[in-house]
Design a protein around this nucleic acid. Structure first.
Lengths: 353, 353
DNA sequence: TTGTAAGCGTTATCAA
DNA sequence: TTGATAACGCTTACAA
């Protein structure tokens, strides 16, 4: 491994000068700088990150701790984080698939001295508490709706409003018995979405009922499995709100297999608006959230905190969630909005399309 | 920030002793060790990673460089890498969404001194070449079918065989005019899958034709858009092989909107077997690949290389791709295999279910 | 069993 | 504009 010393020797200067050149210090002679760049190129030298961060006590790295997350949601968060971090010349140290507080705290501890700050998504309240307790005072942004307002910053999605708008729409369409498929027990986002569902029912004077709140875990299979409970409920629901699109997709599959017409006999609404939502049959009405932006904002907030201006005051941001109407809720006929045309019109909203 | 010195002072020992305790060195008195742990706990001390890696010249970190990747594929690769890395007490420094060789090489360079090795997925051959050229001799595993057999290790999916088996199945079902929707231009996996398609046609004495090889970019929208070309081809194809499931989903959506019966008038096969494949209408026949395992194997190979036994010989591994039959290819009627039952039976093969 | 001290590859503070 | 040199926080011979 070539070090700064090798370059200094080759260029006939001191290591201080080489360091200056690589840090863009203007007080270096032009020809000297050129000699240094040449030597460095020749020797294929690049400053050692560990050594650099030891002296500067800045790592240019953000730690990212995520729970056990699947599919599009995960990739989009990371994409957003990665984009924003790279733009600011930060790297990201990732640790995902954490099941419990112990694991996530251990992972955070192992990042000591390697990161300038942490972005943490706690799957449930217990984890969030544990993290706050153990991690004391280091720059930290939660990817959660939550918490002690002045403990740290947080960005979240307006899950509650999103869930409410979905169910309110179903109510506006005339549905009176509306079921939901819940996310994992204890999951904060899932709880908020459920809260939105209940809010909407309460707002319309409809009563909630345990038999209408079917268990789920965010997987397609959970959606499939929920179908039997859905059809067994008395009175039988005419609409169902799934806490995410994977489960909504499972519902659509299961309902098709059971011979139940959607939206005729059962309206379905999902949450997340994943890419395949409009490819399902019928195209899935869902609540769109900009998960990528969620990641970007988290980085933004964290960089404000670790920035040169010293610790900025904590902030909380909530990103909107917007209902996207398609055919699975029965609000529009297919002929009104051919999918091909819609795909084109949507393109500005979804960068992957 | 508390350092080893603070702990030494508090415990009344030298810094060497503290270091020994934290490194599990057995030559430390039992009571001394206890005092050190106490002091460390009290002061909330944990060794600084940067400093540690500077002395040991080991970072316990793996660099991961990925191209612009979407959805389930991305999350699963990371999941696999993360799992295997954590098990070996390694962290991962991630940089994704790289569009071109310049970017990926720059990102790799910025990781100097911060990682013990690199896992790189090059989207196209140009990138792979560039990486090999610039990164010279540091432990490196490609997540690609590829390359200079003794330059470095590589793990890949048997895209070619997977594509071939999908198309051979269509041929066995009697289809004679079979189209494909290609992945992004230059993408290695996409090219291999296309190669498999062509192999199968050639093997059956069927002729390939440019008008049957529709352009695509791995997005649902590309699938939607491919429908018009598909239906315009003369003679009209009776089956289509999509280079990934997102595009296959788009095809299903587009064909439904166009009023073309699947599989009756058009059989459809995808690639990847993403979670929602069986929720589509009709359930999508696809080629299953264990993407998570791909990530795990990459870590395994890399750890062999950076391991204490010195640089192991380079290895190449190819993971199998297996056709999963569902209804979109018309090979089975729905009543034969109710989806609910299949979901249960499949559970051993797919950990998320 | 414990302590002293020499690095590891940088940056940054002095002088020159 | 440059060069010595002292940190940075840790590991690890080598001594005691």
């Amino acid at each position: 491994m070539t070090t700064i010393r090798d370059v200094a020797r080759a260029a006939g200067v001191s290591i201080a000068t080489v360091s200056r050149v690589f840090n863009g210090n203007p007080r270096v002679g032009e020809d000297t700088a050129l000699r240094v760049w040449d030597a460095a190129g020749e020797l294929d030298y690049w400053p050692n990150g560990a050594a650099r961060s030891l002296t500067t006590s800045r790592t240019q790295t953000l730690g990212v701790l995520l729970p056990d997350l699947y599919g599009d949601f995960f990739s989009e968060v990371i994409r957003g984080i990665d984009q924003a971090a790279r733009r600011a010349h930060f790297q990201i140290l990732l640790s995902s698939s954490h099941a419990d507080p112990i694991e996530i705290v251990a992972a955070a501890r192992a990042m000591r001295g390697r990161v300038d700050g942490l972005i943490i998504m706690a799957s449930d309240r217990g984890t969030a508490e544990a993290v706050l307790g153990f991690l004391g005072r280091q720059p930290l942004v939660f990817l959660n709706p939550y918490l002690d307002p002045d403990g740290c910053s947080a960005v979240s999605i307006d899950n509650r409003a999103g869930g409410r708008s979905a169910v309110e729409h179903l109510i506006a369409l005339g549905h009176r018995v509306i079921a939901t498929v819940r996310g994992p027990e204890g999951n904060i986002d899932a709880e908020e979405r459920l809260g939105g569902y209940r809010d909407a029912l309460a707002g319309a004077g409809l009563s909630a009922s345990p038999q209408l709140e079917l268990p789920g875990d965010f997987t397609e299979t959970a959606g499939f499995r929920a179908v039997s409970g859905l059809l067994a409920a008395v009175p039988r629901p005419t609409a169902v709100f799934a806490a995410n699109d994977a489960m909504a997709a499972g519902l659509l599959g299961g309902l098709r297999d059971a011979g139940v017409a959607v939206p005729g006999e059962m309206a379905v609404v999902g949450f997340d608006d994943i890419g395949v939502a409009r490819c399902l049959t019928p195209p899935l009405t869902s609540v769109r959230v900009d998960v990528c932006e969620l990641g970007r904002r988290a980085v933004q907030l964290l960089l404000e905190t670790v920035g040169p201006d010293g610790p900025a005051p904590c902030r909380r941001e909530v990103l909107p969630a917007r209902l996207v109407l398609r055919e699975s809720c029965g609000c529009r006929s297919r002929t009104e909005l051919p999918v091909l045309a819609r795909g084109a019109g949507d393109s500005g909203e979804r960068d992957r399309i």
